[in-house]
């Protein structure tokens, strides 16, 4: 009935009699009470069972997904409130020390902890998260050491060994095993400014990528090299004639029945091509050729055939090593 009808219609009968005693009006139905009897209870369980099972199923799915996403759940937590993971050698104690460095300790802001961790040259990137239970979850990516250097800040100061990363940064090498450090080739005859993590080495921007390529693509050569000399490396002037990387070969890695190869010289401008060529030539056969009468030789990869200026071709030559021992 319309609103106008209800408000303004003519009322013929003011009293329409008592209200009808309809059963729906008399008995409000109460269906929310606890079901009666065993059948009622079973029925209630049966009607709610699909909902309960669906909730359990989705909770299980969410739990499994949570567990799968949480990669660090597989590594044991260090110190109870810290989950730590790294791809290098940094020990958990080192991380704990940095994390607890401050009045708030483990309660510090994760961004501050991340900045502290990344301030160390050995760390490339740090992922710091705080879990719901308050524990910290730290994942580190470390720099890859490709060489080592020895430094001495003063004449009476002790000699320090620092590691050189593929991007030229030097770091202390915390947690590195002694054997791993000794197996790295040593960079010699370098000129450096600054100290510790602020140290800058002239020419390392060429030597470090060179060593990284050798380490990753020519691992057999890398194992035989004991040092790389930057004596003739001019750094920024890498294209200058005579700018070389001089690699010292470990004496113990060669057979005794032929002349020894003591040094390999790469030009700083063309070392990639020279490395590729070195990988293909048989150095052992070269040294066993008739006419190789000297006791030790230097392999000069840096001599180039300049018939085509746009793409110089390396022309390796064996040169008898000078009598004086090469450092």
């Amino acid at each position: 009935m319309g609103l106008f009808d209800n408000l303004f219609r003519k009322r013929r009968d003011a009293f329409m009699g008592p209200a009808d005693r309809d059963w729906r009006a008399l008995v409000p139905q109460d269906v929310n009470r606890v079901p009666e009897g065993e059948i009622g209870r079973k029925r209630a369980v049966r009607s709610k069972l699909p909902t309960v099972l669906a909730v359990i199923f989705f909770a299980a799915v969410v739990g499994v997904l949570w567990w799968a996403v949480d990669e660090s759940a597989t590594s044991a937590p260090a110190g109870g409130a810290l989950r730590f993971k790294t791809d290098g050698f940094l020990p958990a104690d080192f991380v704990k020390k940095i994390v607890a460095n401050g009045p708030d300790g483990f309660g510090r802001d994760v961004r501050v902890i991340k900045a502290d961790l990344e301030s160390d040259n050995q760390v490339v990137a740090a992922d710091v998260r705080r879990r719901n239970d308050g524990s910290l979850e730290i994942s580190l990516r470390e720099r890859l050491a490709v060489a080592r250097i020895t430094t001495q800040s003063g004449k009476s100061a002790p000699i320090q060994v620092r590691l050189v990363a593929s991007d030229g940064q030097t770091f202390a090498g915390t947690g590195y095993p002694e054997q791993a450090v000794r197996s790295l080739p040593e960079i010699q005859d370098y000129r450096a400014t600054g100290s510790d993590d602020k140290m800058l080495i002239e020419g390392v921007e060429i030597a470090a990528p060179f060593l990284l390529v050798v380490r990753t693509q020519y691992p057999n050569l890398y194992k035989q090299w004991s040092a790389v000399s930057l004596r003739d490396c001019f750094g920024a002037q890498e294209d200058s004639p005579g700018s070389n990387l001089r690699v010292t070969v470990r004496p113990g890695t060669q057979p005794m029945d032929r002349p020894a190869l003591v040094e390999i010289v790469f030009s700083t401008a063309n070392w990639r091509n020279e490395l590729a060529l070195l990988g293909r030539i048989n150095v052992d056969e070269l040294l066993r050729r008739p006419g190789t009468t000297a006791q030790a030789y230097v392999l000069k990869m840096s001599i180039q055939n300049r018939t085509n200026a746009s793409s110089p071709v390396p022309e390796p030559r064996l040169v008898p090593a000078p009598a004086a021992p090469i450092r």
Partner: peptide, 11 residues
């Protein structure tokens, strides 16, 4: 009505 409501069912 109460007998049926006891099963959480409405008449």
């Amino acid at each position: 009505v109460g007998m049926v409501n006891g099963m959480s069912i409405r008449v």
